[in-house]
Design a protein around this nucleic acid. Sequence first.
DNA 1: TCGCCTAGCTGGCCGTGTAG
DNA 2: CTACACGGCCAGCTAGGCGA
Length: 356
Amino acid sequence: MSPTSLPGTPSGELIRSVGSNERPDGPFLSFLVDQLTKVEEQNEWLKNKVIQLEKEQEEYYLDGQKRMEIGFRNVAKCVEEVGAMREVFKEIVGIMSGERVRFVDPSNENVTNEEVDRVSSSTLLANNSRRERQERRQQYEADYTALNTDSTVKTEESVRDSGILHHEDDHEDGDDSDSSRGAEYQRTVSYKINRAIQSVHDVAREYFEGLPGRPSLMSLERRYGSTWRRSSKERTLFAKRMCIINKINDVRKNPTHYGLPESINRNMAIKVVENIRLGNNNFQGHHCRLSLSQLYTYFSKKMDQLEDYSLSLKIRGEPRRIYLMREREARLERAGSEEEVLESVSLSKPSTDGEN
DNA sequence: TCGCCTAGCTGGCCGTGTAG
DNA sequence: CTACACGGCCAGCTAGGCGA
C-alpha cells in the first residue's frame, strides 16, 4: 500500500457516490473531510514510524557489528594470554615434576630437543627475564643518581616544609585536598630504600635527612609507621639498615658505654660506626672493610667489642675476600712445601734402607 | 585472664651476580 | 669454574591489641 495514494482515491469515490445517490449535505461532507484528514494523519504517523523503525534497525545492526568486532578482538587477546599462561604453567609443572630442563638440569641429560627448542623460542620467558633485568638495572641507576646528587643538608624544618610531617601535623593542615594527600600517600607508600648505598654516612643520610628529592626514612616512620614498608623486601632491608641506625643512636645516647667522650654528636656517632665498617673491627678474625650487610651481621650477632668504638680509624681494613684469598694461597704454599718434604723423605728412604 | 589475630623481628637458606 | 657476597624469601618466634 502506498501511503501517498491513500488521501486521494477513497475520498474521491466517496464524494462521487454521495453526489449520485444523495443530496449533498454540508455537515455530512465536513464529517467526511474530517475522517479523511484523520486517515491522512494516521498514514503520515505510520510512515514516520516505519522510517524510525528502519533507522533503529540500522543502528541496532551497526551496534551489533561493533560489539562483535570488539568481542573478536577480546577473544584474540584472551587466546594470546591463555597461551602465555599455558607456557608458564608448563614450566612450573616441568620444574615440579623434575622433567624440566635447562635451569634445573645443567647437565642437560634429561632435556629433549623439543623442550630445548620450546624454551629457547619462548618469547614470553625471554621478554620477562629481559624486562626484569632492565628494571633492576634502571632501579640501581636511579638509586646511584639519587645518592650522588648534591643537596643541601635538610633540617627538621625543611623536612616539614617538604610535606613530610609528623602525625600531629596531619590534623593541622586542613586546607590540603584529599586527592593531593592521596597522591602523596601513594608516592610515599611506594618508597623504595636506596640499594646503591654502601657507607654508614649514606645510610644515616637516607634515614635522618633523606636523599635529594626524597623524604627521610625517619619522617616516613613518624608519619606512616610501618605502613610505608609493607613489602617484605623493604621490611627486611629496612630492618637490616635499622640495626646500623640503632647503633648510631645508641652510641650518641650512651657514649660512655663505648668509652667515648660525653659531648659526642650524631655526626661523630656516625663516624664511629663508619670507622668500625672501615677497619676498626674484628670480623671473623680480621680487620676487614665491611659491606653494610656484613656490618649488620657484625652488630646483630654481637661480634662488636669495646675497642672497636673510636673516633679515629685505627686500621684501614681490606675486604674479607682479600684475606680469604691470601689464606688460600698460604694454605696451598704450605701444602706444596709439605709435599716437597714428603717427596724428599721418600726419595731419601731407599738409600737409607739400602744403607741399613 | 585467655585465646586469637596481626605486625614485626630474626636467622637460616637459596638464587644470582661477580671477582679471581 | 669456584667461592663468596648480597638481596630476598620464608618459617618461627614474640609482642601488642582486642574481644569474650
